[in-house]
C-alpha cells in the first residue's frame, strides 16, 4: 500500500527504525522545546505527556535475527481522514493545508478527549495535572511555545514554533509565502544517530523525498486510510509487516513503551 496523497510541498518525517537506539534524547529535546512540564510525581507511562514517545517492540518469534526494535512515535500527522479533526466538537484541531501539519489549538480545547479515543496511534496527551516546573526552571522555557494548562489535550505539531520562526525569517529574506521553508523539529535535531529526518519531498531536505519511496519505507496501520506523514524505514521484514499488520501478529509479542 503506497498510495501517496501527500503533496510534495508538505512536510514529512522519516524515522529509521534500524538506527534508533532507544536513548530517549528526542523525548527530552521535544519536552524542552515545547515547554512540556516534568512529570507530576504520580504520573505514569499512561498519564504522562510525551509528544514524542519511543516504544520498544519485541519481535516475538518472528524476528530475523533482530529480537526487538525501537519505534519513536510522534503524532503521525494524518493526511487523509485525519481522525482527530472530524471528531472535535469545537474545531480545536485543524490541518494546515500548506504544511500538512495537524495543529491542536489547546486554547480552544475543552478537554472532552474524544480526539484521543479517535486516534489509533495514541499520539495525543491529556494534561491530567497542571504543568509545574521546579522553582526558577520556568525561566528556561522556550519563548516560542505557549505552555498549556490542566484539562486540555496536546500533541506533537512538528515543532510549530520552529516552523513559524523559519517562516518569519524566510519572509525577511523575501521568500514567497507559498514556498515551503526548511526547518527541523527538535527531535530530529537531537537524535544522536540521525535516525529522524525531516523536510518536504519537493525540496528533498535530508533526502526525505527519496526515502519515502524506498523499498524499506512503511507507515503505521496504512489500511486505516489515514495517510500518515510520518514514515518509517527498516530493512527488517518483520518490522515492516508488524507495523502494517500485513500478517497476523503472534501472541508472544509484548511492548514496553
Amino acid at each position: 500500500m503506497k498510495s501517496i496523497e501527500i503533496s510534495p510541498s508538505q512536510y514529512v518525517m522519516v524515522i529509521d527504525a534500524d538506527r534508533c537506539t532507544g536513548c530517549g534524547a528526542c523525548m527530552v529535546a521535544c519536552a524542552i522545546e515545547n515547554n512540556v512540564a516534568p512529570a507530576h510525581p504520580d504520573a505514569t507511562d499512561r498519564t504522562g505527556v510525551t509528544w514524542m514517545k519511543v516504544v520498544k517492540v519485541s519481535s516475538g518469534n518472528n524476528g530475523d535475527g533482530k529480537p526487538a526494535c525501537y519505534l519513536p512515535l510522534p503524532c503521525q500527522q494524518c493526511a487523509a481522514e485525519t481522525p482527530c479533526v472530524t471528531v472535535c466538537p469545537q474545531n480545536a484541531v485543524e490541518v494546515d493545508q500548506q504544511t500538512g501539519i495537524v495543529f491542536q489549538m489547546s486554547q480552544r480545547c475543552l478537554g472532552c478527549r474524544y480526539c484521543m479515543a479517535a486516534c489509533p496511534y495514541h499520539a495525543r496527551y491529556f494534561n491530567w495535572w497542571d504543568p509545574e516546573w521546579p522553582e526558577g526552571m520556568e525561566q528556561t522555557l522556550n519563548p516560542d511555545v505557549a505552555p498549556r494548562m490542566r484539562g486540555v489535550v496536546e500533541k506533537c505539531n512538528f515543532c510549530h514554533g520552529r516552523y513559524q520562526a523559519a517562516r518569519a525569517s524566510a519572509a525577511e529574506h523575501g521568500q514567497a509565502s507559498s514556498d515551503p521553508v526548511t526547518y527541523e523539529p527538535a527531535c530530529a535535531q537531537a537524535c544522536p544517530t540521525r535516525a529522524i529526518k525531516f523536510g518536504t519531498p519537493a525540496n528533498n531536505e535530508q533526502g526525505v523525498g527519496d526515502l519515502v519511496h524506498s523499498s524499506s519505507a512503511f507507515r503505521l496501520l496504512p489500511r486505516l486510510g489515514t495517510e500518515p506523514r510520518v514514515y518509517y524505514l527498516s530493512k527488517h521484514k518483520w518490522i515492516r509487516q508488524m507495523a502494517q499488520m500485513e500478517k497476523e501478529t503472534s501472541t508472544g509479542e509484548e511492548v514496553h513503551g
Binding site: 532507544g22 530517549g24 523525548m27 527530552v28 516534568p38 512529570a39 507511562d45 505527556v49 510525551t50
Partner: peptide
Amino acid sequence: VSPILSKIYQESDLKP
C-alpha cells in the same frame, strides 16, 4: 539529573 528526564524514566515504559 533534570526532572524532565521523567519523560524517559517515568512517563514511558522504555526502561525496565
